[in-house]
Design a protein around this nucleic acid. Structure first.
Length: 699
DNA sequence: CGCGCTTTTAC
DNA sequence: TAAAAGCGC
């Protein structure tokens, strides 16, 4: 596999030189041009928030200096279209090969597919790798070759695969640089003046960059790991791994983490240290959840905006931006929730347990549309990660087959004493409650007046009363749920009568729109985004409250035009349409438990409305033969290495008819038995010839 | 050792 | 809530 020209190594969220298969492949072929393309507009509403951009900035600087010391440098490009930038780069460098590592979020699946096609059309050899997961999503299936639909089964399988995850690769010793004279770097701007102050604080707590990530991993494994199972249920424990942002940007290889942790496990097992072993299992499980989030995203690329179990689309959300704001600002009146939200606001970080608490409160007590909450997490979390966040919010919203029940309201007071028994966490983040005795710290509304006075608390004044009482929330939730089930049943009946054509748009899932956001409006002119400072000037005055989060794209929510319609998902199709990521594909990704086959957990999709331009969910991996192209190699005897090399997750929108079933086996588009035999394990390379098989798949 | 009880914890 | 795990008898 050697070409005449140089190779482009396209860095994305794999910002490391160690165990980076794309980089290693590039180095093996000769001259390397390492490139990072910054094209936030491509991500639609999910362009990185302030803290993510801060991280990225430093991580890239770190990578750049590593590449420099190895003999090359990092070409940075500012772009609104990654693929065009790559094509230009091919021209200016004369590159004949492109290497990159896989990503699994819906936007990347599409973009990377497009990139591959476009470059192959130019005669470039493209090869992509797994650098982000222990196993590629398509490798992990049940006995029938179907993807798992519950985490436990998925993870059990991962831990008992017939082959181990790839061993981590060493960093290259030296990189021969391609000729960079004709491809000057653009200066990338990741923060504006107004953000610098807030960002400065981040540097005190975090050190982005792959070698720092590596240090963090080592430090964690040799230190807090052994106590992980004890401490992982304390809100303010400083003993979580803190690896998630490093992992999100691919600064540390999850396979390396896995191997090191397993080594530790073996030695603890030999010592009979069962607490240590349990800790390892728990930590591995959190790695497993991360794997599972990619798995879900790959198998259901709408999981960031559509509930996986369809009933939720009939849930009558409370579209109330004052609730939303109270939640964001940590002024709900529930100390644990508020402490969490203040911590998130201040630091971009939140313990996993507390994420569950605040998200659950958001969905079940406030009954705000879950995607708002997810979007806010996206904008504020340092480790914001589309796949993980989608998994988390779906879990909370009860739309995973193994998620938590939607009708069970968690009691923040109770959880407060569970995760923060001494109230230290609340006192740290809610100084106004600091003087309240622990006995009342998680339910100040019950505290005797004299105690409140002594503690300097005036409820409703310097700390709010609960904005929604739990009893009220419970009955409101019951009401909402009964409406939801009624609607769901009605819809199902309509579908079974075959009248769904007549219903048209109501069978389409239309999520509640994000609150109208000035920045979102400006999506029409992508270039505006490039310069956040100017952007800020467009914000209408009244919405720029100093106390609000200094987070681009969410600080400026204004009320949706007509809340009446957007409070009902079925009526808000028109409004919300423009808010979904620009890829504008409308596969209905709902999974409905197939009641017809009890106990089997078979999942089905519901049908999309006939008026929706359907997308074709192509699970073909690697070489781009169409779904119906049975000439694809089905060798299952190829080696591991080959398996990893040529395979690319493909999410390709086409104009073909939409499949009724995701997990079906007849039509060859499901993530089911149909794609296992088609899995082109023997293909390392994608070339022009194969491209010709790539066209839109029609059935 | 097995039986019902409480406790834990869910992605 | 509900299934599994711990636990006292």
């Amino acid at each position: 596999m050697s070409g005449g020209g140089c190779s482009i190594v396209w860095f994305r969220r794999d910002l490391r030189v160690e165990d980076n298969p794309a980089l290693s492949a590039g180095v093996r072929t000769g001259q390397v041009v390492a490139v990072f393309v910054w094209a936030p507009e491509e991500e639609g509403p999910y362009h990185p928030g302030r803290v993510s951009r801060w991280w990225l900035k430093h991580s890239l600087a770190h990578l750049e200096s590593s590449l420099k010391s190895l003999g090359t440098s990092l070409v940075t490009k500012r772009s609104t279209d990654s693929v065009s930038s790559l094509l230009e780069l091919v021209k200016s460098t004369g590159a004949t090969q492109l290497f990159f590592n896989h990503l699994y979020d819906p936007l990347s699946l599409i973009r990377d597919h497009r990139a591959k096609q476009a470059l192959i059309a130019q005669g470039v050899t493209v090869q992509s790798f797994n650098a982000d997961l222990l196993y590629e999503p398509w490798e992990v299936n049940d006995e029938q070759g179907h993807p798992f639909t519950t985490f436990a089964a998925f993870w059990e399988r991962c831990l008992s695969m017939p082959y181990d995850p790839e061993a981590p690769l060493l960093p290259p010793k030296k990189i021969i640089s391609g000729d960079l004279t004709r491809c000057p770097s653009d200066t990338l701007v990741f923060e504006d003046e107004s953000e610098k102050g807030s960002n400065a604080l981040l540097a005190r707590a975090w050190s982005p960059g792959w070698s720092n990530a590596d240090k963090a991993l080592t430090a964690f494994i040799n230190g807090p790991l052994i106590e992980y199972s004890k401490n992982c249920r304390k809100a303010d424990s400083a003993t979580t791994s803190f690896l998630s942002p490093h992992l999100h940007f691919g600064e540390v290889s999850v396979r390396k983490a896995f191997h090191l942790v397993r080594l530790k496990q073996v030695s603890w097992a030999n010592e009979g240290n069962s607490a240590g072993e349990e800790s390892v299992n728990l930590f591995l499980k959190s790695i497993g959840l991360r794997e599972y989030s990619r798995y879900l995203s790959f198998n259901h690329p709408y999981s960031h905006e559509r509930p996986l179990l369809g009933h939720l689309k009939f849930f009558p959300w409370v579209v109330d931006e004052s609730y939303f704001k109270a939640w964001r600002q940590g002024r709900t009146g529930y100390p644990l929730v508020d402490a969490g939200m203040r911590e998130l606001w201040a630091t971009g970080w939140l313990h996993d347990r507390i994420r569950v608490v605040v998200a659950s409160f958001f969905v079940k007590v406030l009954q705000l549309p879950w995607r708002w909450g997810m979007k806010y997490f996206w904008d504020t979390l340092l480790d914001a990660d589309l796949e993980s966040d989608a998994l988390g919010w779906q879990y909370i919203s009860g739309t995973l087959p193994d998620g938590r029940e939607l009708d069970r309201i968690d009691n923040p007071e109770f959880e407060g004493y569970k995760f923060d028994p001494n109230g230290e966490y609340v006192r740290r983040w809610l100084p106004e409650l600091a003087r309240l005795p622990t006995e009342w710290i998680h339910h100040p509304w019950n505290a005797p007046e004299y105690l409140l006075q002594a503690a300097g608390i005036e409820l409703g004044s310097n700390y709010p009363l609960p904005i929604v009482g739990l009893d009220a929330a419970k009955s409101r939730l019951q009401e909402a749920l009964s409406i939801m089930w009624q609607q769901e049943a009605a819809s199902r009946a309509a579908t079974e009568n075959g009248t769904e054509e007549g219903l048209g748009d109501s069978s389409e899932y239309a999520p509640v729109a994000f609150p109208q956001d000035v920045q979102m409006d400006e999506d029409i002119e992508p270039s505006v985004r490039a310069e956040p400072p100017r952007n800020r000037n467009h914000l209408p005055g009244p919405n720029r409250q100093f106390e609000d989060q200094m987070v681009p794209s969410i600080t400026s929510f204004v009320r949706a035009e007509d809340d009446e319609t957007s409070s009902d998902v079925r009526n808000s199709a028109g409004e919300s349409r423009g808010e979904v990521p620009a890829t504008n594909m409308n596969v209905n990704m709902n999974m409905d438990l197939d009641t017809g086959s009890p106990g089997t957990g078979v999942l089905q999709t519901t049908r999309t409305g006939p008026n929706i331009p359907p997308a074709h969910y192509n699970f073909t991996t690697g070489v781009y033969n169409g779904a119906e192209d049975s000439t694809a190699e089905s060798s299952s005897t190829t080696s591991r290495r080959e398996r990893d090399g040529g395979v690319v997750p493909v999410w390709s929108p086409t104009t073909s008819a939409f499949s009724d079933q995701i997990v079906g086996d007849e039509n060859g588009v499901g993530a089911s038995s149909s794609y296992l035999p088609r899995h082109p394990q023997s293909h390392q390379l994608v070339n022009c010839q194969q491209l010709s098989q790539t066209g839109p798949v029609s059935r």
